[in-house]
Write a protein that binds this DNA or RNA. Structure first.
Length: 351
DNA sequence: GAGTCGTGGTT
DNA sequence: TAACCAAGACT
């Protein structure tokens, strides 16, 4: 496969991607983290922004987590940001400020699994390490003519064996990039472009089109529906009340609107007033209910949220204190925090 | 093995 | 509109 892939890669590969122009272990690691479950187009602006704010291991390691989350805001899978922050601290403290050079030490870093470790070891240090990301998985699954679920334990073992077998000595880095580009350009998940594919001569699925359609991800069970009522409280100066999410769980560590009710949309005005009263007294605030926005919808990877925003007038001064996880900030400052995407959009509309 | 964890683009 | 899913890791 390498003999077919590498000439094609030199001719048709995506050589303009910024992480292909560096040999810096930090930049290459950062790119791999950003690209986990994330399309190249989406990750690109975040890569530039994060490198500008945190150019080296030391800069990321010594930054406050809040500053890292602020730059990660909108990209999703925020555990990656927390793990990356911790990993940078481990690299500085335990590995002399260099990405570790052996697979076991690399995989001991939070957020670095086998494929990410392999990708960095190959690209930064030229090691003969095979990757198995979604692209390599799909390409190998098809060329080998496998059937069944690509993520089953049996296929997983087989695919890692194939990946190791096909990865050439000495040029693993180029080969890894090549198979990813092939997956993005020709061997796409849907509507694969076989006619122009350099692997067509040795691809079992291309020879037997009924196999092409065998590539199906594990069936995702239906997203359960959840409901919530969020609180948008503003004081006389227009500052907005924000609440820091707990470290674990959805939107972990990000700043969001306080949740007035985590299980339902409070359509009844009396219920709203009651819930607001309870919340105000629990937090030591004075709040007066105003209007309820129309219902909005947000899709997560594993559930669907329908929520409404209750506007309220905030009377008392809120002092920023870390313990309560509450702050009151003007819109401009709030937009500089680590916010989930729908909350960011909401605040931008107020501005 | 299955569930958790986001978001935006494509079809 | 709704479904699909992308340079996965962790619990």
């Amino acid at each position: 496969m390498a003999e077919l892939l590498l000439p094609w890669y030199r001719r048709c590969g995506r050589h303009d991607l910024p992480w292909r122009k560096t040999q810096d272990d930090y930049a290459l690691w950062l790119a791999e983290i950003l690209l986990q479950q994330t399309q190249v187009r989406t990750a690109l602006p975040y890569y530039g922004r994060l490198l500008a704010h945190f150019p080296r291991w030391q800069d990321l390691a010594s930054a406050p987590l809040d500053a890292v989350l602020a730059q990660w805001s909108g990209l999703g899978y925020y555990a990656r940001a927390r793990n990356a922050h911790r990993a940078a601290q481990m690299v500085v403290r335990d590995h002399g400020g260099r990405f570790p050079k052996d697979r076991a030490s690399a995989m001991a870093l939070p957020g670095v699994g086998r494929s990410t470790a392999a990708a960095v070891l190959a690209s930064a240090y030229g090691q003969d390490e095979a990757i198995l990301d979604a692209n390599a998985r799909r390409v190998l699954f098809r060329t080998a003519g496998l059937v069944g679920e690509p993520r089953s334990a049996a296929n997983d073992r087989r695919l890692w064996q194939l990946a190791a077998m096909e990865t050439p000595r000495g040029t693993a880095h180029d080969y890894n990039q090549a198979i990813q580009d092939l997956g993005a350009i020709h061997c796409r998940s849907r509507r694969p472009d076989c006619p122009g594919c350099p692997l067509r001569p040795r691809c079992r699925a291309a020879a037997r089109p009924e196999l092409l359609n065998r590539y199906e991800q594990t069936h995702r069970s239906d997203r359960p529906q959840r409901y919530a009522t969020l609180l948008l409280a503003r004081d006389a100066a227009g500052r907005v009340l924000l609440h820091r999410r707990p470290e674990h769980g959805i939107w972990g560590g990000l700043w969001s609107l306080p949740i007035l009710d985590a299980s339902q949309i409070l359509t009844d005005p009396d219920q709203r007033a009651q819930a607001l009263e309870r919340y105000a007294s629990a937090c030591g605030l004075r709040l007066k209910a105003q209007s309820l926005d129309p219902v909005r919808r947000h899709l997560f990877s594993h559930f669907q949220l329908e929520y409404a925003v209750l506007h309220a007038q905030l009377r008392a001064e809120v002092v920023a204190d870390g313990d309560s996880g509450l702050v009151c900030q003007d819109i401009g400052s709030a937009l500089g925090l680590g916010l989930p995407s729908p909350i960011r959009r909401l605040l931008e509309q107020l501005d």
